[in-house]
Amino acid sequence: MYLKKSSLVKKVCMIALVVPLLMTGTFSTSASDWKKDEGTGNGAGVQLEYLDRGLVAASTSEGLFLSWRLLADEVTGSSGTGLTGSTFHVYRNGNKIATVEDSTNYLDKDGTDQSEYYVTAIRDGKEIDQSSSVSP
């Protein structure tokens, strides 16, 4: 009896979630639709929340670990390990310390707890979208 109730509950929940999406056509929209409408919520696009680079720095036994977001308009494809996209420059205390081509994280073995970091995305050879500065 428990399995039948659980299965029924799952079906009801799925229907409750899917039917409104089908009626609004949300399944056929994408982040690229949002970009076309510049996120205004007008037209066929969907309104997405604004996310910044989201850079974080954490102190580890091996150095300072940095991690950040790949934004929707930077995605260029996918590989066996995930999405592909922009190249990034990593800065410590205002000085460029690395170019990251295949990831959205970096381990700075020479960083200290007083280090301050930011990253910039690279598009067409130019730095764009500088993140906020963070410290561990």
Rank of each mutant, 00 (worst) to 15 (best):
K4G: 01
K4W: 09
K5N: 12
S6Y: 12
L8S: 11
M14L: 14
M14Q: 09
M14N: 06
I15K: 05
V19L: 15
V19M: 11
V19Y: 05
V19C: 05
P20S: 08
L21C: 13
L21H: 07
L21F: 12
M23G: 03
T24L: 07
T24K: 08
G25A: 07
G25L: 08
T26N: 08
T26H: 05
S28N: 14
T29N: 03
S30I: 01
S30K: 10
A31I: 04
S32A: 13
D33G: 02
W34T: 14
W34P: 00
W34A: 13
K36C: 00
D37S: 09
N42D: 13
G43Q: 10
G45T: 10
V46N: 08
Q47N: 10
Q47P: 00
E49R: 08
D52N: 15
L55A: 11
A57C: 07
A57N: 08
T60C: 03
T60D: 06
S61T: 14
E62C: 00
E62T: 06
E62R: 08
L64Q: 10
F65Y: 14
L66F: 05
L66G: 04
S67R: 11
S67G: 08
W68A: 03
L71D: 09
A72T: 06
A72E: 15
A72G: 01
E74Y: 09
E74C: 03
G77W: 05
S78F: 13
S79F: 11
S79V: 02
T81Q: 13
L83N: 09
T84G: 01
F88I: 01
H89M: 04
R92G: 02
G94V: 01
G94L: 00
N95K: 15
K96G: 01
A98N: 03
T99F: 02
V100N: 02
V100A: 02
E101P: 00
S103C: 00
N105L: 01
N105Y: 09
L107T: 08
L107Q: 06
D108A: 04
D108G: 06
K109N: 02
D110V: 01
D110H: 07
D110C: 00
G111P: 07
T112I: 07
T112V: 04
T112P: 03
D113S: 15
D113L: 11
S115D: 08
Y117D: 03
Y117S: 04
Y118S: 13
Y118A: 04
V119P: 07
T120D: 01
A121D: 06
A121N: 07
R123N: 09
R123V: 11
D124K: 12
G125K: 06
K126H: 11
E127W: 05
D129A: 12
D129R: 15
Q130S: 12
S132L: 07
V134A: 08
S135P: 01
